[in-house]
């Protein structure tokens, strides 16, 4: 018994260490974002919201947030739609070359981001589409759709395969069955995929840096400020970005797992 609890303690300690390792840089960044000193040194100065005030006063940063928000909402919408269609095709149909279809559909996140960014820039420049907001959207959709597909696929794996034919049998056309059965069943996954892809897009730096041109997203902006000098504004922006994308990811998890474990909550 004592040995067991000893082991238990060790495991708990290990988990705590892992979290410390993961979150220290973020916490540090947050701490210095409310620290009055210009340089990140210890001992700390006094508490201040000065750096937040300066970034909120800066129209360039507002513009970057606007671009990021626009991009991530557009990307989330498109990527979730494409991901859903891809996952449904996989669920519903059998065809030759399905394995190839699946591996191609899941491929983009495995490509190194720099390569992807370069390739996107080369392609978009050739067709006169680079340096605009929609160039970022297109590139991010490519990157994010596989995540949406994976989430929807996980949900479709839980569906009773008789549900859709049962709807046909009760008089639903294929489109109607999709609307009345497949989409309601996948709703938690669709919402979750939307949040997740929005978060991935909001965070993404490398590809955006290549294709964004003058329409900087927040991560691109951060790099530009960093290249100039060490400015505690970075910590403030970083904390905000972290808060937004973590909220999206947490919401995605909550929606998916709450609904998935109890798929029959009341009310539609």
């Amino acid at each position: 018994m004592t040995r067991l609890s000893g082991q238990n303690l060790l495991l708990r300690g290990y988990v705590v260490l892992v979290f410390v390792f993961v979150f220290t840089p973020i916490v540090t960044s947050f701490v210095f974002s409310v620290n009055s000193d210009r340089f990140p040194t210890i001992p700390l100065g006094h508490f201040t919201t000065h750096w937040y005030e300066t970034i909120f006063a800066d129209p360039d940063i507002w513009e970057a947030f606007r671009v990021s928000a626009l991009v991530s909402v557009s990307v989330a919408t498109l990527a979730t739609f494409i991901g859903f269609c891809t996952a449904y095709t996989d669920y519903r149909y059998n065809f030759t070359g399905k394995a190839l279809y699946l591996s191609l559909a899941l491929l983009p996140p495995t490509i190194p981001l720099v390569i992807m960014g370069l390739a996107m820039l080369a392609l978009l420049a050739r067709i006169n589409m680079s340096g605009q907001i929609h160039s970022i959207v297109v590139s991010h959709v490519v990157l994010c759709a596989p995540f949406a597909m994976a989430v929807v696929r996980m949900r479709l794996a839980q569906i009773n395969p008789d549900l859709e034919p049962a709807a046909w049998n009760l008089g639903a056309s294929p489109w109607r069955a999709m609307r009345e059965v497949i989409i309601p069943f996948c709703r938690p996954a669709i919402a979750s995929a939307f949040c997740l892809t929005a978060a991935v897009s909001f965070d993404e730096f490398a590809v955006a840096w290549f294709v964004s041109g003058l329409n900087k997203t927040v991560p691109v902006m951060i790099l530009e400020i960093l290249q100039g000098n060490t400015d505690p504004q970075i910590n403030a922006i970083g904390s905000i970005v972290f808060a937004i994308s973590m909220s999206l990811v947490v919401i995605a998890q909550l929606i998916f797992f709450r609904k998935a474990s109890a798929p029959t909550t009341t009310g539609i």
């Binding site: 008789d162 034919p165 049962a166 049998n169 009760l170 008089g171 059965v181 069943f185 798929p263 009341t266």
Partner: peptide, 28 residues
Amino acid sequence: DSADRDTPMVWQSLALFPFLSVRQNVEF
């Protein structure tokens, strides 16, 4: 098409719609 036959079936798995209430299932 199955939808136009009016040959409803009771399934081995029952295939009730889990996201609808009892009444909504019957109304389908």
